[in-house]
Design a protein around this nucleic acid. Structure first.
Lengths: 214, 214
DNA sequence: TCGGAGCCGTACTGTACGGTACGGTTCGGC
DNA sequence: GCCGAACCGTACCGTACAGTACGGCTCCGA
C-alpha cells in the first residue's frame, strides 16, 4: 500500500449514464447518513431493481467500490501551469491548493465517504481505504510536490526531501480538522474561514521552508 | 460539542474488576479486528453470558461506550510541572507531548477505537466520537496549552491565540499520520521514527512561534 | 408483428446478529 | 446444611438485510 496509481487497480470501464445515476443515488444516501446504507434503499432511491444492482456491481462491496471511484473521478481538478514561478505565483498556487483541500475535506461528501472507507478499513477485504487515500492525500501530494520543486528550482524554497516538505504543508493546512469532522465534531468552517486558514498555513509553510530569492 | 468535560456526561460508577475484564475482552476483539464485533463474540471471549452483558451495559451501544471510556480512563498521563520554564525545558516538554501523542495515534488500540468511533459518528446516536475526541485531541490540548502559555510568560514564545498555536502544533506533529492509519495505510512508524518526527515538529513549531528570550 | 434483451418491482430465502428466557452452578450469608 | 443472588452456558425469538427468483413492461431490431 502507501500510494499507488491514480485510480488504482481493476480499472474496469466507466459507468454508463444510468449507472452514474445509480452511483449518485448511493452518494446522496451516504451523505444524508442517518439510516444504514442498504441495497433496498439504494434500489428505491435510484428507481432500479436490486437484481440490476447485483448484475452491474456484483455485490454490496462492488457497489461501494464503484461509488468511491465515481466520486473520485470527478474531483481531479485541472493541472496548474508551473513555469516562471515567482514568489507571488508560488504563494498563490499554494494557497489555492490549501483552499481546495480544505474545501474537500470539509465537504459532507468527503466526510461521509471517508467514514465509510475508515469503517471498511477495519474489517478488511477490498481496498476502499486505499482508493480514498489515492484520490485524496496522494493525489494532492502529486499535484503539490511539482510546485514545491519548481519553487526550489526558482530559489524560493529550500528543502531536502520533497515528500517531507509536503507532509509538513499537509499538516499545517489540515491540522485537526479532518479527524474532528470524522468524529462528528461540529466544526464551523465557511469559505471565509477556509481562506483565512489557507493563507495562514501557506504563510507558516513559507516561514519554515522559504528563503529570500537570492 | 467542541471540547467538553474530561470524561463527558453520564459518568456512572467505575466498572468492577470483572467488568474491567469484560471491557478488556472487548478491546482485544476490537484491536484484532477481522470479524465484526458481535455480542456473542464478546461473551465468548470474556467467558460471560450475554444476559450479564445486557444487565451490566444495557445494550451494544452501552458496551461500546463503556469500553471507550475504560480505555480513555487509563491513558491520562501524569501532569507535568511547569514553573521555571527555560528554553531547554520547554523544548523537552513539547517533545514529550509530541512523542506521546504520536505513540498513541499509532497504537493499534487507538486506530481500532477511532475507527469504531468514526463509523459510529456517521449513524449517530450516542456520542462515541465526542468521547474519543475529548480524550484525545481535547485532552492533549488541555495539557499542552498551559505549557505554551508558560512559555509565553517566560518570553520564549510569542502568539496571540493559544488555541490557534496549539492547533498548529497539533498539525505539525500529526500531519497525515492519523488519517493514513485510519484508512489502512501501512505506515511504518517505530519508536526511533517517532522520536525524530517529534523533534522535527517541535523544532518547526519553535521556528514559527519561538523568540529569543529577551 | 414478433421475439428477445434489459430492466423494474416485488416477493422470497437464508442467515447473522441483537436481545431475551431459562435451567444449572457457584458462592456468600444465615 | 439451606436459601437466594449472581452469573454461566445455551437455546431461543424477531428482525433486518444481503442476495435470488420471477412476472411483467418497454424498447429495439428483424
Amino acid at each position: 500500500m502507501s500510494a499507488s496509481a491514480a485510480i488504482l487497480d481493476t480499472p474496469s470501464e466507466p459507468p454508463s449514464l444510468r449507472q452514474q445515476a445509480v452511483l449518485d443515488a448511493v452518494l446522496s444516501l451516504i451523505v444524508e447518513g442517518g439510516d444504514p446504507l442498504t441495497m433496498d434503499a439504494v434500489a428505491r432511491r435510484a428507481s432500479c431493481s436490486k437484481e440490476t444492482l447485483y448484475k452491474w456491481f456484483g455485490d454490496r462491496d462492488g457497489l461501494l467500490n464503484a461509488t468511491v471511484r465515481w466520486q473520485a473521478s470527478r474531483v481531479h481538478a485541472g493541472r496548474t501551469e508551473i513555469d516562471a514561478l515567482d514568489a507571488a505565483t508560488l504563494n498563490k498556487n499554494l494557497r489555492d491548493f490549501a483552499e481546495s483541500w480544505l474545501s474537500v475535506i470539509a465537504s459532507p461528501t468527503s466526510v461521509a465517504l471517508n467514514r465509510i472507507a475508515v469503517a471498511h478499513a477495519g474489517s478488511h477485504k477490498s481496498n476502499l481505504g486505499a482508493i480514498v487515500l489515492a484520490n485524496g492525500r496522494v493525489a494532492i501530494g502529486a499535484r503539490v510536490k511539482p510546485v514545491l520543486e519548481a519553487g526550489r528550482a526558482a530559489g524560493l524554497l529550500a528543502f531536502e526531501d520533497t515528500e517531507a516538505a509536503f507532509r509538513t504543508f499537509f499538516g499545517l493546512v489540515g491540522r485537526d480538522i479532518q479527524i474532528r469532522l470524522l468524529l462528528g465534531d461540529a466544526l464551523p468552517l465557511d469559505a471565509a474561514g477556509i481562506g483565512r486558514d489557507a493563507a495562514q498555513a501557506v504563510e507558516q509553510f513559507l516561514a519554515l521552508y522559504g528563503r529570500a530569492n537570492p
